Amino acid sequence: MNLKLQLTRAFFISLLSALGFGIVALLVSDQKINQFDSVITSLVQGREAPALTNIMRFFTFIGGGIPVVVLTIIVLFFLYQVLHHRRELILFASVVVGSALLNETLKVIFHRARPTLHRIVNANGFSFPSGHSMAAFSLYGILAYLLWRHISTPVGRGLLIIISITMITAIGVSRIYLGVHYPSDVLGGFLASGSWLTVSIWFYQRYLEKRKLKVSAEKTREIRK
């Protein structure tokens, strides 16, 4: 796939994700998504069982707080000290930190109260969009993007996508199951983070292309001298 097609695809995915988030946010603000939330919540929480509760607690734990910070530090160290990929380090840090800041901003804007019925764990702060969902999508999404560039086999890339999707989905669903988020919170988080992730990749790819053209032009001038 050529760069121009990649950039076009990233731009439209970002645009569609932003549009999708805008629609969900509007429905949340007008309280016209309550039926959707009720149906999905009943479906998810209707599967409650002790073993499943432990699994959901696990995914919620690794999807926020200390585990995310630790994983982020490990990835930053690996990119800087092992691979010496400074530009990829900046991209990774920008996506993860930017997603967290965006989430806090959106929560303040919409100030949606969390669900109060059938809570299995405690959670503070506003509900929309889900911080765990945004963090998971950004973290595992950018990891998939960066690792994809260094994996050449179809099997390896397939496993990468499966693991990333599984982690993102499981963390999002765990928030509904444990009663601390509405399904629309999770959906909104995925869409907001998806838009931020793809627009970040778009700028990164544009930077690489401009840098490549600049280096090529400099080499051409050197040859002509």
Rank of each mutant, 00 (worst) to 15 (best):
M1H: 01
M1A: 05
K4F: 01
L7I: 10
T8K: 08
T8L: 12
A10R: 07
F11E: 01
F11A: 10
I13M: 15
I13P: 01
L16K: 11
S17C: 15
S17M: 11
A18L: 15
G20W: 06
I23T: 12
A25Y: 02
L26T: 10
L26D: 15
L27N: 10
S29A: 14
D30N: 15
Q35E: 07
V39T: 09
T41L: 08
L43I: 09
Q45D: 04
A49S: 15
A49K: 11
A51P: 01
L52V: 10
T53F: 00
N54P: 06
I55Y: 11
I55A: 06
I55S: 00
M56G: 04
M56N: 14
M56C: 09
R57Y: 05
F58W: 13
F59T: 10
T60V: 00
F61N: 11
I62L: 11
G64T: 04
I66D: 03
V69Y: 14
T72D: 03
T72G: 06
V75C: 12
V75W: 10
V75S: 02
Q81G: 08
V82N: 09
L83M: 12
H85I: 08
R87G: 06
L89V: 07
L91C: 12
L91K: 02
F92P: 00
S94R: 12
V97R: 04
V97Y: 13
A100W: 07
E104L: 14
K107Y: 14
I109R: 11
R112S: 06
R114A: 05
P115F: 06
P115D: 13
T116V: 11
L117G: 10
R119Y: 02
R119H: 09
V121D: 06
A123I: 09
A123C: 03
A123Q: 11
N124L: 13
G125Y: 12
S127F: 10
F128L: 14
G131Q: 10
S133H: 06
S133R: 07
A135K: 05
A136S: 08
S138M: 03
Y140P: 09
Y140L: 12
I142A: 01
I142F: 00
P154C: 04
V155T: 14
V155E: 04
V155P: 01
R157T: 07
G158N: 07
M167E: 00
M167L: 15
I171Q: 03
G172R: 05
G172N: 00
V173F: 12
L178F: 10
V180Y: 00
V180D: 09
V180L: 09
Y182E: 12
P183N: 06
V186H: 08
G188C: 07
G188M: 03
G189F: 10
F190P: 02
S193N: 07
L197Q: 04
T198R: 05
T198A: 15
T198Y: 13
T198S: 14
I201A: 02
W202V: 02
F203M: 11
Q205W: 01
Q205K: 04
R206W: 09
Y207L: 13
L208Q: 11
K214P: 01
S216Y: 05
A217N: 09
T220F: 04
R221L: 15
R224I: 14
R224Y: 12
